[in-house]
Structure formats: structure tokens, C-alpha cells
């Protein structure tokens, strides 16, 4: 499993994809950061993190689109699936590799807070809370991206599919207010990635939300394993 992890991380840097991901992520977050804090002369970072979540919808699929789709197209998956490694090991290795890329880039983007702290009082509890939430949301998005990638052998389809699902998950909260039925509204609210996130921006450590993110993540990784299992059998 470690071998696959290592190769994945390595392949992000031997192909342009890793660099493109980092560049787009940092450019988008840098732009959003300066717009939402420096430009508006505030140290309130909640706006920045909200925007960042929308940026995720575009950048995370860059990271996950090729994970399984490319292996399937070039038939390299055969060497993984006939090696003494479990399917869960393969999926986890790919997930952890994408997560490593994501966390590294997220940490790099934390540099932005340094200039902010020079010019004003930053509410660090809110920053930490939001960062943890961002990490969890990113993790969930990666798991969804990997699942979509396991369904197709075309990277582009994988990316578009992931963007669609992520967009739906985020937008659900906004459509919510237009719906009259209480039941539908609370179900949508429960599904929504966005609404769970709110507490973190106030610096509140919401344990329920963490469980939610980790579970969604686990479910999609499990489904990816099932996709491979199913393909073997049919």
C-alpha cells in the first residue's frame, strides 16, 4: 500500500497535474483572500473560507480525476489488482496521496494569515476552526472525487462528474430557503456540506459535523472499493 501511495505522490509531480493543482489552488485562494480581507480592510476571515469552499469545487477534481480513470484507461490497474494488495489498500493509498497534496497546499496557503496579523487583530479561534473545517471538507470532496473517478475511464468525465456532485452538495443549502416543506428542508439541511460548516466559522468545535464529514468520506471510499469488487464479478 505504501508503494502505491509513494508512486501516486510522485506521479503528481512528474505530470503537470500536481503543479496545476497547486498553482490554481494558491492563485484562487490568494485572490479570494486579498479580496475578502485586505481589500475590504477586515480581519474577519469567514468570508474567505466560504469563497474557498467554492474554489474547492473546481480544484479538488483536478486532484482526483485521474486517480482511477487513468489507470483504467491505460490498463495499469491490472498490475495493482493482480499484486498481493487489498482493494481497500489501493483505494486508501490513492486517497492518502491526494490528501497529502491537498493538505500541503492548504498549509502553504496559511502563509496569508501572517501579513494579516501584522495589520490587525486576528481571531485565531475562528481561523483554526475554519481551517479544520476546510480540511474535513476537502477530505470529503477528495473521497467523492475518487469515487467518481473509479466509475469511468475518462479523466474529463470524472472531473465534470465530480464538479457536478460537489456543486450540488454545496448549493443544496442555498436552494433550501426556497422550499416550504419542513421535512424536505431538514433533509436537505442534513445533507448539505455547507450548513454543517457554519459552526466552525464561529470557532465552535462541532463534533457532530466532524462525524458527518468523516462518515461521508468513509462511505465514498467504501463505494470505490465496491466499484472494483463489482467490476471483477460482472
Amino acid at each position: 500500500m505504501f508503494a502505491i501511495y509513494k508512486r501516486e505522490v510522485y506521479s503528481y509531480f512528474t505530470t503537470p497535474i500536481g503543479y496545476v493543482f497547486m498553482a490554481v489552488f494558491l492563485a484562487a485562494s490568494g485572490f479570494l483572500f486579498s479580496l475578502s480581507t485586505l481589500q475590504s480592510q477586515t480581519t474577519d476571515v469567514s468570508g474567505y473560507f466560504q469563497f474557498l469552499m467554492f474554489a474547492y469545487i473546481i480544484v479538488i477534481p483536478l486532484l482526483t480525476m485521474k486517480t482511477f480513470a487513468e489507470e483504467r484507461r491505460t490498463r495499469t490497474e491490472q498490475v495493482l489488482l493482480t499484486a498481493p494488495v487489498s482493494l481497500t489498500g489501493i483505494v486508501l493509498a490513492k486517497f492518502l496521496a491526494a490528501l497529502t497534496m491537498f493538505v500541503t497546499t492548504l498549509l502553504l496557503s496559511c502563509l496569508y494569515f501572517y501579513p494579516l496579523s501584522l495589520y490587525g487583530e486576528v481571531n485565531w479561534a475562528r481561523v483554526w476552526g475554519s481551517l479544520i473545517a476546510m480540511l474535513l471538507i476537502g477530505m470529503t470532496f477528495i473521497a467523492i472525487g475518487i469515487f467518481v473517478s473509479s466509475l469511468t475511464e475518462n479523466q474529463f468525465t470524472a472531473a465534470l462528474g465530480t464538479i457536478g456532485i460537489l456543486l450540488a452538495l454545496v448549493i443544496v443549502a442555498m436552494v433550501n430557503s426556497l422550499i416550504d416543506s419542513y421535512v424536505v428542508r431538514s433533509v436537505l439541511n442534513w445533507i448539505s456540506i455547507y450548513s454543517r460548516y457554519a459552526n466552525f466559522t464561529y470557532g465552535i468545535f462541532d463534533f457532530g459535523a466532524i462525524v458527518y464529514y468523516v462518515s461521508v468520506c468513509a462511505v465514498f471510499l467504501f463505494l470505490s472499493v465496491r466499484v472494483f469488487e463489482k467490476r471483477r464479478w460482472s
Binding site: A3, R7, Y10, T74, T76, Q78, V79
Partner: peptide, 19 residues
């Protein structure tokens, strides 16, 4: 099943670790 963006040595090393 070759990862074409690897060198032969890297690829065989990967297989070595994979197995």
C-alpha cells in the same frame, strides 16, 4: 501495465515494493 511517465528503474522499483 506500464506507467509511461516513470523511468524503467523507478517502475521496477515500484513493482518491487508493491509485491
Amino acid at each position: 501495465p506500464l506507467y509511461v511517465d516513470m523511468k524503467v528503474d523507478e517502475y521496477l522499483g515500484f513493482i518491487y515494493e508493491l509485491k
